[in-house]
Amino acid sequence: MKKTLSGAVGLIALLTIWQLAALKYNSVLFPGPYEVIKSWLDLFKDGSMTEHIKTSMLRFAIGYIVAAISGIVLGMFFGWFKKLWNFFNPVIQVMRPISPIAWIPFIVLWFGIGDIPAVVIIFLASFYPVLLSTIAAVGRVDKIYLKVAQNFALTRFETLTKIVLPASFPQISTGLHQAIGTGWVFLVAGEMIGSQSGLGFLIIDSRNNLRPDWLLAAILTIGIIGLLLDELIKWIEKQIYIKWGATEKHEG
């Protein structure tokens, strides 16, 4: 309760300062909160904001889910066959620090423009955290679970699906959490290349139309959705930890 109150106070203070600052400048350069919120509501009213959000969320969902599934599957594989991972590890370590944005020229060359570049960029941004956390998680599965699997004569495949995956899931979920953040950050970049819709496109479009109020409305929307996504995955993570019997989050 107290936390919510402090948050509200902070928010009101920010809006006040913003409004006061905006009075000093030309609204074409720096629109105030009143204008921005008004334009924001207008964008909702004519339905364009809802469309942009829907499009962006869909692209994000596809990129993220493909990254999550492939990251977990490959992570399980490499975590299990550790020797094989030793071959791939250096390659991944070189690839990982490259910003997905650096790939944009190639992405456009290979995939053209439209929905796919955004999806690919979100994929690239989300994939590595999931992959690496899964590999680490599989390596840390308590040996006793593997003994139990042997004990009850589970096949290798059963051991992976019934023991290793659920046992490492709390730690994998940490990677999934990290990935949702980075993936969302790169959504804007992805949608700036040749998209004709989405929140990233709205930013480019606002610039071309000299509408800083739309620009800020788009930025706010991205921030708010990012926050909601984070809260959602935090909640899911908490449920996982509760079900797995860990009262609080602890890694390793």
Binding site: K147, N151, F152, E158, K162, W244
Partner: peptide
């Protein structure tokens, strides 16, 4: 043969019932 361990080796994500059924599932 089955082995019982000091730290039980129960699977925390399964209920009591589904823990007991682990060896029967195959």
């Amino acid at each position: 043969n089955t082995t019982l361990f000091q730290n039980y080796g129960l699977l925390p994500w399964r209920t009591v019932q589904s823990n007991v059924e682990l060896g029967l599932e195959s």
